[in-house]
Design a protein around this nucleic acid. Structure first.
Length: 611
DNA sequence: GTTAGGG
DNA sequence: CCCTAAC
């Protein structure tokens, strides 16, 4: 099996096949110009940054709460088969040795908590000092909940990285620790149980009302090889969700059962800043750990970027008070070789997150788990006029835009649905990735779905999806908490490309582009695609010279077949004739001649003769 | 990093 | 558009 790495993040690839350039390039370079998009998140981030700056001088923030703030990166093994029917203990017994708690990192962090009060968005600065990363494993956690598929390994984040290559860690949970927590954090906080959250002994197993949660450590090749799902021998997939955590309990909304964590907006803000060239994460406050397998590793995040735990305060009059406790990073798929270092893993996750956020994020509103798509309705009309309902209010950070959208996509998916013959309501629940981009493009309204670029999944969807088929974790944006969508998702279908390396959105060449291409090739020939790119498509960042080469290839083919056989947007015959002429000419003259003008002139003559 | 060609 | 090989 060929191991494929999806990111180029400075791994040491020596000895292993290199990842395709096209893939490695993806994360970092294909979003250069996407930051111009002003999204709600931008506003939020800007506000956060502003307030952060202002508060840096006068740090009078609420320290009390801050110590309970921490960011947790959860990684969950997607292959529940690994754990099913296997006592956790047996897997754990010989695995306590990776523990390498490293309280050396004294990085001080500042988290921002966002709350909206009386229509004014207030950012409370809540410094979190000493966000340690101790990538060590705590003692094996022997407890195991009912849902073994949820078994995960908690790993303290830190500098300690050695030994992981050999560890054979099955599943992990990353946790960003708050200052007051020396121990492992569970990724879920029992309702209202901060004490339990802090209690190490209770960390072993979360047993929520909603779900039992087993966390444990698992090491050794035995685990790796014995229980590896047969479907993906060479890979490990780990569900990972990044979320912020807060010690105190918040909403009991069923919608956010696994996300009752407090927010650290700063984290998002900082990620966002990365997109602008500033990389505060270089200081590594992100805590990630990896799961290692014999060949590769896939880290994914849990579903949709759903803001969790919206709390509210008693309201008076018309106003609505709410606070956003946390945001979650959308689905992330990462593959790294097990020979990669932890540091490179960090970079990988960093790049993935950056790429994700860099494409822009939109805010979605959920009411009782249902996505509210009509932006025109008032809150009261949406049913958000009372406090009780506010408990069911949620937000999602949705995949935003891609670069240079042809048309601005509406913030809701109604538009997409309308193009389909089926009912909008139904289609609104269809994972966008299942709506082929080709269809949308060829349907005449050339709107590129932004959402197909960066999918997300809701917690429930992600979790439920992985159960019937580990490999079914398609990168499909499924509206959060709309279980109906599950019936549509082909669970048995094995998506070819998940992870980050999604296929680029198809961007048919326009006639003008074809004309420019033909013109350039007429002068430069067919062996200088880089020059063609620089000459005529230098400003089209989405057109690589490989694209141009490929397009020329198809143009030649198109020009060679009968018009009846051609598909897609018709290319003027005049251009096709020029294509054939240039192709003929350069096939004979190669690229050796530098006398471009002369060559071009000769070509014109010859093409004239042939025509 | 580019180019060429198959998929 | 992706992937790989070759340079």
């Amino acid at each position: 099996m060929v191991v494929k790495r999806r990111l180029n993040c400075g791994f040491d690839f020596s000895g292993v096949p290199k990842a395709p350039r096209s893939t490695r390039r993806k994360v970092s370079s294909e979003r250069d110009d996407v930051d111009s998009q002003l999204t709600a998140f931008d506003l939020l981030a800007s506000l956060a940054g502003k307030l952060l700056e202002e508060s840096e001088s006068s740090s009078t923030s609420t320290y009390g709460d801050s110590q309970e703030d921490h960011l947790v990166v959860k990684i969950k093994q997607e292959h529940e088969l690994v754990y099913n029917d296997k006592p956790c203990k047996s897997e754990l017994s010989h695995q306590g040795n990776l523990s390498s708690k490293s309280p050396s990192d004294n990085t001080s962090e500042t988290c921002l908590q966002v709350s909206s009060l009386e229509n004014d968005c207030v950012l409370e600065q809540t410094p979190v000092s000493d966000c340690k990363m101790a990538l060590g494993l705590k003692q094996p956690l022997l407890g195991c909940g009912n849902k073994k598929e949820d078994c995960a390994v908690l790993v303290e984040q830190g500098e300690a990285t050695n030994g992981l290559e050999d560890g054979g860690l099955i599943a992990d949970t990353f946790s960003l620790k708050g200052p007051s927590h020396e121990s492992v954090h569970l990724d879920g906080v029992p309702n209202g149980s901060l004490e339990g959250y802090r209690n190490h002994s209770k960390l072993a197993c979360r047993d929520d009302d909603d779900e039992n949660y087993c966390t444990y450590y698992k090491f050794g090749d035995k685990c790796n090889k014995s229980y590896r799902p047969m479907t993906r021998v060479g890979y490990r997939r780990i569900k990972k969700s990044m979320m912020t955590k807060h010690g105190r309990a918040v909403s009991r909304s069923k919608c956010f059962e696994d996300t009752r964590t407090d927010g650290c907006l700063k984290s998002l803000y900082r990620k966002r800043k990365l997109c602008y060239g500033y990389n505060p994460w270089k200081h590594e406050t992100v805590h990630r750990k990896r799961r290692l397998s014999d060949k590769g590793l896939v880290v994914t995040s849990d579903g949709g970027l759903s803001s969790e735990s919206v709390t509210n305060s008693p309201q008076k009059g018309e106003s609505v008070k709410l606070s956003i406790k946390s945001f979650r990073i959308p689905e992330l798929f990462i593959e790294v070789p097990e020979t990669a270092t932890v540091g490179s893993l960090k970079r990988t996750v960093m790049e993935a997150v950056t790429a994700l956020l860099g494409d822009g994020i939109r805010i979605g509103v959920l009411v009782q788990g249902k996505k509210v798509r009509d932006d025109t309705n008032t809150l009261s009309q949406t049913g958000l006029s009372c406090r009780e309902n506010l408990d069911n209010l949620g937000f999602t950070l949705e995949p935003g835009s891609s670069e240079n959208p042809v048309l601005s996509l509406p913030t809701d998916s109604t538009n997409l649905s309308e193009r389909s013959s089926a009912s909008p309501e139904l289609n609104s629940r269809i994972p966008l990735s299942l709506l082929h981009a080709d269809h949308m493009i060829n349907s005449g309204t050339c709107v590129e779905s932004k959402q197909e670029l960066v999918p997300y999944q809701s917690d429930i969807t992600a979790d439920e999806q992985q159960q019937p088929s580990p490999d079914s974790r398609a990168i499909v944006p499924v509206p959060p908490l709309e279980p109906e969508a599950l019936a549509i998702v082909p669970l048995n279908e094995k998506p070819k490309r998940t992870e980050l390396s999604q296929r680029r959105t198809r961007r048919p060449f326009s006639v003008s582009e074809v004309e420019a291409l033909v013109h350039a090739v007429e002068e430069l020939g067919t062996g200088r695609w880089r020059d063609v790119k620089l000459r005529s498509f230098d400003d089209a960042s989405h057109r690589t010279y490989v694209d141009l080469k490929d397009k020329w290839k198809t143009l030649v083919h198109t020009a060679s077949i009968s018009p009846q056989q051609r598909r897609g947007q018709p290319v003027p015959q005049e251009l096709l004739d020029r294509v054939l002429a240039a192709h003929r000419y350069w096939s004979q003259h190669q690229v050796k001649q530098n006398g471009k003008h002369q060559a071009a002139a000769m070509m014109v003559v010859e093409s004239g003769l042939s025509m």
